[in-house]
Design a protein around this nucleic acid. Structure first.
Lengths: 124, 124, 124, 124
DNA sequence: GTGGTCTAGACCACC
DNA sequence: GTGGTCTAGACCACG
């Protein structure tokens, strides 16, 4: 599993890790029952503290994305794909709703806003 | 001037105040030379710490939106409308770019994303 | 708020803290909008590490029991009493279900089990 | 002998195995002198690490439930039935005492608690 | 002052 | 080897 961490964008690292796992599941890069890298392994790979990875994994467990398999690590839960599919849409939807609200508070017209969205998609 | 503050949405209160002032200027609700409420007045009105309002105003001064008028408080600067117009576009553009990046990381297709944007605009 | 921590019963300290808060809300000792002790304050009071309290509070936030009030700490959420009422029943129900299952696996008769329950309640 | 292992319920697997053996003895499914399955056999049957079964058997020997028969494996000890009878009561009693304590901390009334117990017994 | 995040390192149970 | 828990201490943003 490949993970891109940006330590300067304000989003906590554990949250970025959690999202990357969800995205990987949603995109089929991680399948049900597959083990995620161990806490220590991913921590060294990303050059972050094991506790940071552990926190990400803990929250994924609470969210039903990962299940602990005694002694062998953490694996993708059966219900994970559905939830990840839903979660990634929810994350985007929430952020879109928030920025739309701000744009409307700012008095932008619908067309101005859509223009910004289009150019942002192309640019990135 | 009317201000909506949400103490639980993650955006710093001083930042929310600053944006609201900018939006009011951009939308013509505050015109060049008009006084903004005093720090103490706005603070009591919003039930917020005066330091918070002071910080918002300080940053607005640094941004050239407000100018101090000796003995009478702070007023909208002559160059404010242009800057506010630009600032609100910049704020929205930044946030849009960020959410677009996340959507692409999440594997969303362009059409899915635009669909979310459209429904968000309508719903709100 | 009074909290009894037992460092030897296997239940993580942060979990015990979380439950005690829920019980206090369910029993009306903490009311909606009331602030809980600050992380540092409760940590020194219980002689545990601030991070342990912080983790308990974080999970209470995720559970909708606490809400952060910017700059002033954490307060009991409006929906907390209902959830705590429900949660404490759920905690007890889960544990009861689990011990009942074990008793049945162990071949105990209904009356034997009820006898144990009665004596346990009286004794404590 | 039939054994139900749940790798996700928090109770150590070796402990679950040990209890299942005790329950089987207490319920007369295993009689004095009867051989238990070999470590390797039970391990493959339960899809569990042989070390785990070995640990369970070792603790059962220390508890006087199993005795080694030279060259042929482990068998139910003569004093096993009495001890298993007692052990299963002790296990249940301990767990009941613990859950009762929690219920009382949580402010539950005696009747509420008994109601939960009754419904749990019926449901299961 | 508040909580949030991260790092570092220790200890434990389990397999 | 695995994850879980706890401690200790630093830094940051916010008010």
């Amino acid at each position: 599993m490949i993970c891109h961490i940006d330590a300067t964008n304000g989003i906590p690292i554990y949250e970025q890790i959690g999202r990357q796992v969800k995205y990987a599941v949603a995109n089929g890069l991680l399948v049900i029952g597959e083990h995620v890298p161990s806490v220590r392994e991913l921590a060294t790979q990303l050059a972050v503290n094991p506790n940071t990875v552990a926190r990400a994994y803990r929250e994924l467990q609470q969210g039903g994305i990962l299940v602990p398999i005694r002694g062998t690590g953490l694996a993708i839960a059966p219900e994970a794909p559905n939830r990840c599919q839903e979660d990634r849409l929810q994350i985007v939807r929430d952020r879109v709703r928030s920025v739309v609200r701000e744009a409307q508070q700012g008095g932008l017209q619908r067309e101005e806003f859509l223009e910004i969205v289009h150019s942002a998609w192309i640019v990135t």
